[in-house]
Design a protein around this nucleic acid. Structure first.
Lengths: 104, 104
DNA sequence: CTTAACTGCAACCCATGAGTTGCACAACAC
DNA sequence: GTGTTGTGCAACTCATGGGTTGCAGTTAAG
């Protein structure tokens, strides 16, 4: 949880994640020109995202394709909803949807 | 947005926020014994939370009462839902609820 | 085999974060 | 007035984050 929020705290990382989720998997080398920084910097960001479970790395021959993963976003959203549920009508609704009360 | 996620990335700050939302406003001095750290450390955390809009500080005589605010949590949840909507059925539902399409 | 492209590792710089301590200042109690 | 309690400011340490560069290793292409 720490790592998810920490990963999302950096605007570059949010942009990288969004890019991967929107446009599909890509290599660090392919991503770096879009972000005005070196390949190595992007690799580090991808490492942080990977530690948080927000991307996966898969080797294909000599290149490594990174793909975005949405699951940790659900966990983070659940924390937000749960924490603020008593104080915001909208978050309360989200909270009910993310962890529906056991039937019966 | 950066500041909200960065604030939530620290477990102590999440605990402080949760405490303030659950039990109501409190002073830094009153909070610090619960967190096994100095008052000054708690003050710094509250400062970070305040910069993110997650707490407000109100002076009452010689003490300062901090209160939790849930609004930024809604913004953060909206970002999560929007970003992952295409990849997770639950997030898609949340996204629709947090920013409902204009009627018509 | 040679060359080019992509990745991996390590060292390094600079700034910021998290925490501490010590002391000064302000407000309430007596 | 004095004493006590709560807050604010500043300096300091130690670790981490974001970024760079340079070079070595590996895979594909000629």
């Amino acid at each position: 949880m720490d790592e998810v929020f920490a990963a999302l705290a950096d605007p570059t990382r949010r942009a990288v994640l969004q890019r991967l989720l929107d446009d599909g998997p890509a290599t660090a080398t392919a991503l770096s020109p879009s972000f005005a920084m070196s390949r190595q910097a992007v690799v580090k960001h991808l490492g942080v995202l990977a530690d948080a479970g927000l991307v996966t790395a898969e080797r294909h021959g000599r290149e490594v394709r990174y793909a975005g993963r949405a699951e940790p976003l659900v966990d983070a959203a659940a924390w937000l909803a749960r924490t603020g549920a008593a104080w915001d009508r909208r978050l309360a609704r989200l909270s009910r949807q993310l962890s529906p009360p056991p039937p019966g």
